[in-house]
Design a protein around this nucleic acid. Structure first.
Lengths: 318, 318
DNA sequence: GGGACTAATGCTCAGTTTGAGTATTAGTTG
DNA sequence: CAACTAATACTCAAACTGAGCATTAGTCCC
């Protein structure tokens, strides 16, 4: 559209809320072209990125954000696929994506949230190792990963990223795993980007990808968000920005497990949590579960202090 | 220069190297307008930000970078002061800064490095708590901080940021402290930005600032870098990207202390370090110190693995 | 060649924190 | 009221930490 190439700054937000089942994402777009809430930064109108993000997420989805944090700025040529319906970028423009993560406090089941939400493991099935689902997804990928790992360097990268051969699974290395799958051509975006840069839209053999794709580089941004959130849980009391105001320790544990995609040892989880001083019991009980009623807790005031640390994650044995 | 406002992406790099005395920064600019190595992203020529950063740091300073990591993208209106000698931005443009941190492996004393280097504590005297210097800087600031802290909310922010009233000092909260000082008008950039936005260049009363300013928002980027590096030392073996290939444990401890600005307990530092498996002894000794000769160590191969953790920082008592 | 001096290493000890379980308890449901 | 289901308590050994005291291997100087 413009004679000289312009830089367009795209802002994308990973908006996470916890439902009863697990972390859910706020999505926008139409079927077949699903993406994160997205907008272009207006150099005149917007004073800061964060205000801009809050602004268009609310206007696009009707949802108002709480905690917001910048993730990363992606500028690689060839990974962005301009979003058609934005109508603001032409092929001559260079799109730079600034990714944000926003956390929305849990909403009581049944109460309606604005916007379309989806379980984030739809896009990363291999990241959910709470039950056998994630393992199954990984098993589906393994033949192709092994086929790709022709050198020892690649084999060791695969082993480190996916915790094979005695290496341990690091729940926060979501981006490493995704980038490795991208490089190996095992996620749909890889094929899309290659087709675009080769100019060919060759009818590739129909392969069954594990995990749904997202528009543009949004799945990469989502991977960054998941990784950041999983890592940050350990050193900041950030989980409380996702949890409801009052919760039982089991509910909190389920939430942490859902976010991190791992199972934790129940008794040890509650022990370290109580010792940490991050929570304090309200007097009230919660009896809906069919077992012994649980004490309801809230985050303590010390959990709001600057230096407050996060949760320890005592893994449950296999 | 252009009719429609454009977004200019400025890339700034905090390049850190360890000298014998402590962390040093690569600087560019002329006396009175010192800043970080800086360049504008070229939407046509540069394929990725990281390549662009490596490129212009080398061309501006003659120094080739090793480890590089993106820090943060700053887009607030009013905090950037366009760098005059870049000649690429006009007042109508919106400048967005993408900050990077780069680590250069220590150079043996005496060997020459390209570029101009300076101790990073020149810009943050209050961050060096290894000796009394940092405390003295903090004492100089306290009267003004107290005068600014007129509400209990501000008082508690000061206490949390600077570790007062029983709160502990968090070495990685460099940015929080800097932003607080900026807000309180106790760093020179605050006055500069206010003068600019008020259009007045009133001859303010000459106040003695603690810590030297940098061009544009570069000191903020530097604070982000220091904070990130200090935090990351604890959970990633990143210190080895700063240390020389072979080092004694005391040298490594001095380096960690210099980066983090705190004193560590010597015996406990070496104990956790040896147990961590991050280092392994070479056979060689190092006898230059006048005491018992020290074993020379290198980082182990396990320290290069994806999940390898960082160092624990056993603080020395006051 | 021995004593003073200086770092680097070694070791100890008690108090905490973790990993892994086993044992109770307080509601709900048939 | 017995069976069932969670929540909560308690235990125990192993590993990790904070604080020191103790020992060693060089250099420097008479």
């Amino acid at each position: 559209m413009n004679a000289t190439p312009r830089v367009i700054i795209g802002l994308s937000a990973v908006v996470v809320a916890a439902s009863g089942k697990g972390p859910e994402l706020l999505l926008s777009g139409s079927p077949g072209a699903i993406g994160l809430p997205f907008g272009s930064f207006d150099p005149i109108g917007h004073r800061t990125f964060e205000l801009a993000v809050r602004d268009f997420v609310t206007s696009q989805t009707g949802f108002a954000l709480g905690y917001v944090e910048q993730l990363y700025t992606f500028g690689d040529k060839g990974r962005e696929a301009p979003v058609a319906d934005m109508g603001q970028s032409s092929d001559a423009d260079r799109v730079v994506s600034v990714g944000y993560i926003a956390l929305a406090s849990s909403i009581v089941e049944g109460q309606r949230r604005a916007g379309v939400w989806a379980d984030w493991y739809r896009f990363f099935p291999w990241e959910d190792r709470r039950s056998t689902g994630g393992m199954r997804a990984l098993e589906l990928l393994m033949p192709d990963l092994n086929a790709w790992a022709t050198t020892t360097e690649r084999q060791s990268r695969v082993a480190m990223a996916f915790g094979l051969h005695g290496q341990s699974w690091q729940e926060s290395q979501v981006l490493d795993r995704f980038e490795l799958l991208y490089e190996a051509g095992l996620v749909q975006e890889a094929q899309r980007d290659r087709a675009k840069s080769h100019g060919s839209v060759a009818p590739e053999l129909e392969r069954a990808y594990v995990g749904e794709p997202l528009v543009s580089d949004h799945r990469r941004i989502l991977a960054t968000a998941m990784g950041r959130l999983r890592a940050k849980i350990r050193y900041r009391p950030i989980i409380f920005d996702l949890a409801p105001v009052r919760f039982t320790l089991s509910e909190l544990q389920d939430l942490v497990e859902a976010v991190c995609g791992v199972k934790l040892h129940k008794q040890n989880f509650r022990r370290t949590l109580e010792r940490s001083g991050l929570v304090e019991s309200t007097g009230a009980m919660h009896a809906e579960t069919g077992g012994r009623p649980a004490m309801l807790f809230t985050r303590s005031s010390t959990s709001r202090q600057a230096g407050a640390s996060g949760l320890s994650l005592p893994l449950a044995k296999r």
